[in-house]
């Protein structure tokens, strides 16, 4: 009897293929398929109701969707830049510390250990207009006598969310940049000093170029996180009021799970993925350029 024998390399790779297929490929294909159907969670039979590109057309023509998309881009830009600047500052300062540096590094990571839901509640309380910490402090200090509606005013609410994001994730940048600082070869730095560079010139033209690959890696990782920002925003404002802080994933989450319109939510999700792809490609290009200029590239 003929017995089919698979080549050994395939046999060895098969478990990996099966797992990837089960946890990545099948859900992706299924969600992509359902985005072309009228699938509603509460009516399972609707998964076979093919409606072509109706969901995509609807999302493309929906002003609320594009407003959320634009807001997500703005959040990405603002939060990433602030986190980068603060993280860089923090890392440079911590690198200078000689006594208790290990303790400082551990403390720096504390915000990352909190669950985003908890961070959301914490900042929601801080920014509450009536009983919140911030308004009470401002009123007690005599800086204002009105209740500032932090989570209601569109701009203030957006900044409140940025503040929460920055608080929780600046340390991601700080840790990665700190690793970069430790990896910098000392020769160029010393050479710059011998040549009479000021500390700023040394930092700007020697240290920073060495750190850029680390910064871009942190940016790429965080851009994926922020593009999917959901929990903190959901807890703090749930995208409201009046859609003023609606982001892609608060909108998609509500459409999929509360309104049960999973087909439409998946279509919006697939359009949203473009955002992550664009940012990731951008940061990887930057990373390659930075590495090439350091002579690290291929």
């Amino acid at each position: 009897m003929y017995q089919m024998r698979l080549p050994p390399w395939l046999v060895l790779l098969l478990p990996a293929f099966v797992i990837l297929l089960a946890v990545v490929a099948i859900p992706l294909v299924l969600s992509l398929y359902s985005s072309f159907t009228a699938f509603q969670l509460t009516r399972p039979e609707t998964i076979t109701r093919w409606i072509g590109t109706f969901n995509y057309g609807k999302a493309m023509g929906d002003a609320n969707f594009w407003a959320a998309f634009g807001r997500a881009v703005l959040l990405l830009t603002l939060a990433l830049n602030l986190e980068m600047l603060l993280g860089l500052g923090l890392a440079v300062m911590v690198a200078k510390v000689t006594l208790g540096q290990r303790l400082l590094r551990t403390m720096m990571m504390f915000p990352m250990m909190f669950s985003p839901i908890l961070v959301g509640f914490q900042f929601k309380f801080i920014f509450n207009d009536n009983v919140g910490l911030l308004n009470n402090a401002l009123q007690s200090l005599g800086l204002t006598d009105v209740a500032i509606p932090w989570l209601v005013d569109g701009n203030l609410a957006f900044l409140a969310i940025v503040a929460a994001e920055v608080w929780t994730s600046t340390s991601v940048f700080a840790i990665l940049i700190l690793a970069g600082i430790f990896a910098i070869p000392q020769d160029p730095v010393e050479a710059a000093r011998v040549d009479g560079c000021t500390p700023w010139q040394t930092f700007r033209y020697v240290t920073l170029p060495f750190l850029m690959p680390f910064i871009y890696i942190a940016m790429a990782i965080r851009s994926l996180d922020v593009a999917r920002a959901y929990d903190i925003v959901q807890v703090m404002t749930a995208g409201g009021p009046a859609r003023r802080t609606e982001l892609l994933w608060t909108l998609i989450g509500r459409t999929g799970y509360v309104d049960a319109r999973m087909g439409y939510a998946n279509a919006m999700g697939y359009i949203a993925i473009l955002l992550s792809i664009v940012f990731t490609v951008y940061f990887f290009r930057k990373l390659t350029t930075a590495r090439t200029s350091l002579g690290m590239g291929d």
């Binding site: 009021p241 009046a242 859609r243 509500r254 309104d259 319109r261």
Partner: peptide, 22 residues
């Protein structure tokens, strides 16, 4: 109606927009 919750999700942001003066 099975669409009550979904309808409220469409209605409430508009109520908020009127309340906040948007």
């Amino acid at each position: 109606t099975p669409y009550w919750i979904e309808a409220t999700n469409l209605i409430y942001p508009e109520l908020q927009a009127a309340i906040l003066g948007d």
